[in-house]
Nucleic acid binder design. Structure first.
Lengths: 164, 164
DNA sequence: TATGATTTTAGAATTTTGTTCTGATTTGTA
DNA sequence: TACAAATCAGAACAAAATTCTAAAATCATA
């Protein structure tokens, strides 16, 4: 098709200590300046800049995101909802997935082992808003077998750091 | 104690449409320039800049983070581990929390309703590394009653967007 | 409905940061 | 050890963030 370098991220990129050092810092504060990072890692700005660029292109850094506090925007209730489907064939699974990811209340959807097929994390204002979601959005899907709602009492830890 | 303005974020800040617009953009791409945001929101740079600053100080924007792909750094296995404690008093609960959040493999810890007390999300390389964690770290805690491990087969959706 | 005070904004000026470039240094390989 | 390739330091440049001033809009009150 096309022999030129595509933007398809390569499957595996080898990262050394310097790359990991950069990732550690950017995970905690994506706004840290390249100069500051260079200082902390005993490097000049060029290698830091080039390494970041490479990791962005390779898909190691997927995104830079502002993390918003759900409580501050009236989305303080988190519910874990477990779901099993009636039909498990590809067609119905795809349809379920397509619809579930379109719900803005759903911040996470995992295909899991065990008793249930999926776990979704739902972020809403309060119990009324959850009921609204549960009845009018989730309840409208036509492939559900059964569900179970688990309510989050408090968030003990929530981090995006995977590099240490 | 101290009557001066502290860096304690106020409990509730009122956000208007412009603030929400800014949050929507920053959630998707924290590196978007203030100029670009201003253009899209039909504002000049100053109000955008000032509103961002306010939301940072108010704790609405908790953090700017580079989101790293776990698969690219050999942390491709996600496990949900459900835990009940033997002792449910404050002292033992605190001790458990203190220890569990210190484990770097634990990226999330939720205090939940239902059969279990906690759900933790564990991010590791493979089954060997999970066993290592399960036996030598989790297993060493002395207040566990019982646990259940649910393995994530695939991540369908994972977002930090809560503003729409 | 007018009016003064407060808040918010536009646009330019300044400062800081990101990005590129060149030559030197290091690293890997035979 | 010698050569080629990759990486890096430091300066130069471009672009962005941040600050400043004055104008406009908003709000509360008479």
């Amino acid at each position: 098709m096309n022999s030129k370098k595509e933007n398809t991220p390569e499957l595996q990129i080898s990262l050394d200590e310097k790359d990991m050092g950069i990732l550690k810092l950017l995970q905690k504060d994506a706004k840290m300046t390249i100069r500051d990072m260079a200082r902390q890692l005993n490097l000049s700005t060029t290698p830091v800049y080039e390494r970041i660029r490479k990791m962005e292109q390779a898909g190691v850094i997927k995104q830079y995101a502002a993390i918003v506090d759900p409580k501050k925007i009236d989305k303080g209730l988190t519910v874990l909802c477990y779901i099993t489907l009636k039909e498990h064939n590809k067609k119905y699974g795809r349809k379920f997935i397509q619809e579930i990811i379109s719900f803005t209340e759903v911040t996470e959807c995992l295909n899991i082992s065990g008793e249930f097929d999926f776990m979704i994390k739902v972020q809403v204002k309060d119990m009324d808003e959850y009921r609204e979601f549960y009845v009018n959005k989730l309840g409208e899907l036509d492939n559900l077998s059964h569900t179970q709602s688990i309510f989050v009492i408090s968030v003990i830890k929530a981090t995006h750091q995977v590099v240490y």
